[in-house]
Design a protein around this nucleic acid. Structure first.
Length: 488
RNA sequence: GGUCCCUUCGUCUAGUGGUUAGGACACAGGAUUUUCAUUCCUGCAACAUGGGUUCGAUUCCCAUAGGGACUACCA
């Protein structure tokens, strides 16, 4: 079956792409790539009231940024199009008619008010909520009369009585439902649009989807879908339901509580490779004693299998994401990081908007910071002093390193630096060590005040590399300024 | 309320009918380093509870508890 694998990711354009959705897409992608199958992207826009302008683009952008490219979809086409449900209305109408013809479905003329009343009454009586099948046995004459009167209607599926529906979830095993708990679901709405249930079943069949990998909120709808396949005389696909991703308090990830969408993570300085790797490991692991954590896309694809997906929901640990992102930051190059970092610098007004991203100075700064930063944003935040002299100095560090006698030391260092033949990290290193040896002052006691004078903070890249990049003029000017500060 | 799903360190997880229950992140301590970060040691820390089945259960079964999903003319 390996080459027959066809999977799909089917988001509805109601907003941004949530990381939970992104991971479902990721697992679909991984399964397709692992099996040499096809990854289809389908837009489920059958609810016109929830449609959000720009959502499709946001979803496309998020998936592309994460590196999840699809083989068939709205923009790239394919043999099973169209891939947007609102463009497939005729298909659903025809299929609905098929069901009506075979007496597997019926028109329901109940008003929303009546439905509401029934629901409340049933709830009160502690009965199963859901439709009471009022229109299921309408006579032909009655139906004709209502139809001729122009009464609005929906089409409902006739759930057979006294049956049990069993389906196999690839990561949970067999799941069984009695049809008693299933009500007659709406398959075609009064506006002529299909509901998710119908559209989903029809499309998955027509698009020859072999495996449906979706969020586990769909488990309880699956028996209805199985019944629909049955009514159409189709073989259902394989099902596998992905667990949800939670925030640290155990609730759903939400924008309110922090990052929730793929773009949130991007904007907060997470790298695509890192998020890909991290999300893959959330709810899945290679198993079999394989304890790799940092894995390339190809390694993940090679090791992936649906059976190793865990059925339990997982909490997204941002600390671990940071750790992994740091690994990818260090591994990346200044050139690759530059566009993202520069964008942040430009937003902060640290560099002018027309500044060239391939500027060697900029790349030099990034190179100095990337190994010690966990996120792209960290570089942008911590490297500001490379673009302007420090306005003030870190108070705690001042107490520790700016002492009256520091003035003398800095002055002498400046004199030495002034007479340096060439201003480079190596020479500076030698100079500091020589000076330390000559005076008996420890290197640390020279380095710390210099660092504070030059950068304004007590931490950062290697001092001598930093000085070299900053250049002699800036270094001398800042040291001079620090001396003034100490004296006053 | 009903139906269904889930349950190994704080978090992500590996794993087995008999193991000192392994790794990673985080945390704590130490070493290295001019700072920070890295790196390297060390430490801390888990099989939800109760019944079975079994010579033996973390592992298999059943309950209970806790968490979650669904219960729309939303997906």
């Amino acid at each position: 079956m390996s080459t027959d694998v066809r999977v799909r990711f089917a988001p509805s354009p109601t907003g941004y792409l949530h990381v939970g959705g992104a991971r479902t897409a990721l697992f679909n992608y991984l399964f397709a790539k692992h099996t040499g199958g096809t990854f289809v992207l389908r837009i489920e826009d059958t609810d016109r009231t929830r449609y959000v302008e720009g959502a499709v683009k946001e979803i496309f952008d998020s998936l592309r940024w994460l590196g999840l490219s699809w083989d068939e979809g709205p923009d790239v086409g394919g043999t099973s199009g169209p891939y947007v449900q609102s463009e497939r209305l005729d298909i659903y109408k025809k299929r609905t008619q098929d069901l009506l013809d075979s007496d597997a479905a019926y028109r329901c003329f109940c008003t929303p008010q009546r439905l509401e009343e029934v629901r409340l009454a049933r709830e009160k009586a502690k009965m199963l909520t859901g439709y009471d099948r009022h229109c299921r046995d309408l006579s032909k004459e009655e139906e004709r009369r209502l139809l001729d009167g122009g009464a609005p209607f929906v089409v409902r599926f006739k759930v057979p009585a006294g049956r049990s529906v069993v389906f196999l979830d690839m990561i949970r095993g067999a799941i069984e439902y009695k049809t008693e708990v299933l009500d007659d679901l709406v398959i075609l709405k009064s506006d002529g649009f299909p509901t998710y249930h119908l559209a989903n079943v029809v499309d998955d069949h027509e698009m020859k989807i072999s495996h449906v990998l979706r969020g586990d909120e769909w488990i309880s709808s699956t028996p209805r879908h199985v019944l629909l396949y049955e009514a159409f005389g189709w073989t259902p696909p394989h099902f596998a339901h992905m667990p949800v991703i939670l925030d640290p308090s155990g609730g759903k990830l939400s924008k309110r509580k922090g990052a929730a969408s793929v773009m949130d993570y991007k904007n907060r300085g997470i790298l695509s490779d890192a998020l890909f790797n991290f999300l893959a490991l959330l709810g899945w692991s290679p198993g079999g004693g394989d304890e790799r954590e940092k894995m390339s896309r190809q390694e993940i694809i090679n090791a992936f299998s649906l059976e190793k997906i865990s059925p339990k929901s997982a909490v997204l640990d941002e600390k671990k994401l940071d750790w992994m992102n740091g690994l990818y930051m260090a591994e990346s190059t200044a050139e690759r990081l530059a566009p993202d970092v520069c964008k942040l610098w430009k937003e902060k007004g640290v560099v002018t908007v027309d500044r060239d991203e391939t500027d060697p100075y900029l790349l030099g700064v990034i190179r100095l910071f990337k190994d010690r930063s966990k996120r792209v944003t960290e570089i942008a935040d911590n490297a500001v002093y490379f673009f302007k002299d420090p306005d003030d100095y870190e108070p705690k560090a001042v107490q520790k390193h700016f002492k009256p006698e520091t003035v003398l030391v800095l002055r002498e260092l400046m004199e030495n630096i002034g007479s340096l033949a060439s201003f480079g990290a190596k020479q500076l290193d030698a100079l500091y060590h020589d000076y330390a040896a000559r005076t008996g002052i420890s290197v640390g006691e020279l380095v710390h005040p210099t660092r504070l004078a030059v950068s304004g903070v007590s931490f950062g890249p290697g001092l001598f590399e930093m000085m070299e990049l900053l250049g002699k003029d800036a270094v001398m000017r800042r040291m001079d300024r620090a001396i003034e500060t100490i004296r006053t």
